[in-house]
Design a protein around this nucleic acid. Structure first.
Lengths: 341, 341
DNA sequence: ATGTAAATTTTACGCGCGTAAAGTTATTCG
DNA sequence: CGAATAACTTTACGCGCGTAAAATTTACAT
């Protein structure tokens, strides 16, 4: 490997004895050049291991291969997992994903979108912060860049929406809980940071009414994204005050449930469906960690694969020219029965 | 807001009645232009809300403000947390972090580095995959780009290394376990994917010898990054076969410990330090989730803040011209006593 | 051998901006 | 008020590549 440091495509083209435009064409699509040319380029590639500058490539391209992936908060394992899933799909489809976290901050979310404009992405997979999002900024962005909204919908913006059917989620698990024991009360944050919380509360209320039970929503204090700790502290308070009206608690999400389970542990309250257990606790999300709580958490899980596949494919077909009207796809969750409820 | 869509700096400069180079200078450092000019630019900014294209900016700049942050796997909450921490510090220091995950794959790690070259970063904060990493590729990258290695060291490459002192980690918690009960055996993966595993095993062996106990390393099967499940399945197997020679188990990392705790739960084995408990389990890392296991996990925690602060600052001073010889900084962990051991 | 289509090269320009040099205007100071 | 010094503008070029059009070469069939 005679590594005389190739600096740009010009130099590489000279070294391989082929014109730069043809080399450019090769990198754009190796099959678009004559076989003999391809061989020569690939031989030179072995010798000088040159790679085009991706950001310079995209500068003057009609359609880039960039795809932006934006999630509200990467340190939440749920978003980390779905982001990883989406990234893999982008790569598999020949796109270049770039991952961004909004860090739970609406202002930063707008910042991320501005950065994304500079990237000139062919498309964007965006999980907005939800209620906290700057609607107008999102809308404007969606007008300029093909954007698919996932996880949490904001009006009817973008190409389409793909997410879980939160109404089905909560209705389904509420139904399960009602059929197998006392009807649940609903444990949530008073001012939830995560996007789908309101939908789930509403769905709980609807379901309880439909099943002929009186609902009981318990909202605990707490700011930010430290849901486990909010669930734990809130759990202690509510348990101390005996505010749970039933022995069955449906949490707005798994992280809250995990905190509540810890509070129960600390209070020596047995959780589960056995006769020796005092309460049942269920979550919602299918959080990667829900399998490893004690007791393992009964939850209704997002269909991670289906959501990310549907979202990614919808974006790709839109990028590739298919025009279709705005559509909302809400996928059903799957009840995961474990020991906690 | 007369939004006649400004397309580039040229147009914006024309609209604000100022030359493009001066506008460019303004965006580079607002204080570098006359106050009256600044006012005019900022007035125009209000009207047309234009933003320079970041990637075009960096194309021909001597020193960019880009900083790459690379971690082995973003869906591991430990890395997610430290990455978030680093990102915030970069932003606070006026840099533009771009986050990358190696997806646990050495080939992809190299891919990420190639992408990073195109970004022309002023510096990179790199947590390598470790043993699995392509040493030569890393080395080459570090020669070209100012790179600070963190979390897991690979030879003496890059500007410096900042991480936790795994020897101190394991020695410290081993010492604690010895002083408070039976000496621990060591629970690990046979072929660990994470980088610091070997150091920790070695440190366990050293510590046990020093304390005059005979060590016992138990390595369980399992591939990949699903540590909890590996810990759970391995735990079942080892418990079934009665292969734990003592009642105290030190796990190579918290995620493994979380899985082992689940196995114990499933086997109805009480974990903790009470008289009614059969075994003690301890982890290592201070994983965000370790607080919420049942029982809460005793562990030795990375000093997240100190590691990320030291790493970030070391990189920034290097970027800003300070030349200093390669140095390895290993920060001590803090023992977090909880109920599991 | 000849014609034709495909591939390639040449040439030229563009993307959105940084940056250096030289000339012009504005500000400051004695 | 004139000179010195900033600050600014103009001009010109560069970064690393895409892309379009015209000219040339190559491949393949007849």
């Amino acid at each position: 490997m005679a590594d005389d440091k190739i600096r740009n495509m010009e130099e590489f083209a000279r070294m391989s004895g082929i014109s730069r435009p043809t080399v450019s064409k090769y990198f754009n699509d190796p099959a678009s050049v004559r076989a003999s040319t391809r061989t020569r380029i690939e031989a030179a590639l072995e010798q000088y291991d040159y790679r085009p500058n991706i950001y310079a490539m995209n500068q003057n391209r009609k359609l880039t291969k960039n795809v932006g992936v934006v999630v509200p908060l990467l340190s939440d394992p749920y978003f980390a997992e779905i982001a990883r899933n989406l990234e893999q799909r982008c790569i598999a489809a020949g796109y270049r994903p770039t991952l961004f976290s909004s860090h739970g901050d609406p202002a930063f979310e707008v910042e991320v979108l501005e950065t994304l404009r500079s990237l000139k992405p062919a498309g964007v997979l965006l999980a907005p912060l939800g209620r906290a999002s700057d609607r107008k900024a999102l809308e404007k962005f969606c007008e300029d860049v093909p954007t698919l909204i996932f996880d949490s919908s904001v009006d009817e913006i973008g190409l389409a929406f793909v997410g879980s059917d939160n109404f089905q989620f909560t209705a389904h698990i509420t139904d399960y809980l009602c059929r197998t024991g006392e009807p649940p009360c609903f444990f949530e944050m008073k001012t939830p940071a995560n996007p789908n919380a309101h939908r789930r509360r509403q769905s709980y209320l609807n379901a309880m009414e439909e099943f002929g039970h009186s609902p009981d929503v318990i909202s605990v204090e707490g700011e930010g994204w430290g849901f486990e700790e909010i669930g734990r502290l809130g759990g202690h308070e509510v348990l101390d005050q005996g505010r749970f009206s039933t022995n069955t608690i449906l949490c707005s999400n798994d992280r809250l449930a995990i905190g509540l389970l810890t509070a129960c542990y600390e209070k020596n309250i047995r959780v589960g469906r056995g006769d020796d257990c005092a309460i049942r606790v269920a979550g919602q999300d299918g959080h990667p960690h829900s399998r490893y709580t004690c007791p393992p958490l009964t939850t209704i899980s997002h269909n991670y694969d289906a959501v990310s596949q549907t979202a990614a494919e919808a974006l790709f077909t839109a990028i590739e020219g298919q025009v279709s009207p705005w559509k909302s796809t809400r996928l059903e969750g799957k009840l995961i029965l474990r020991d906690s409820a």
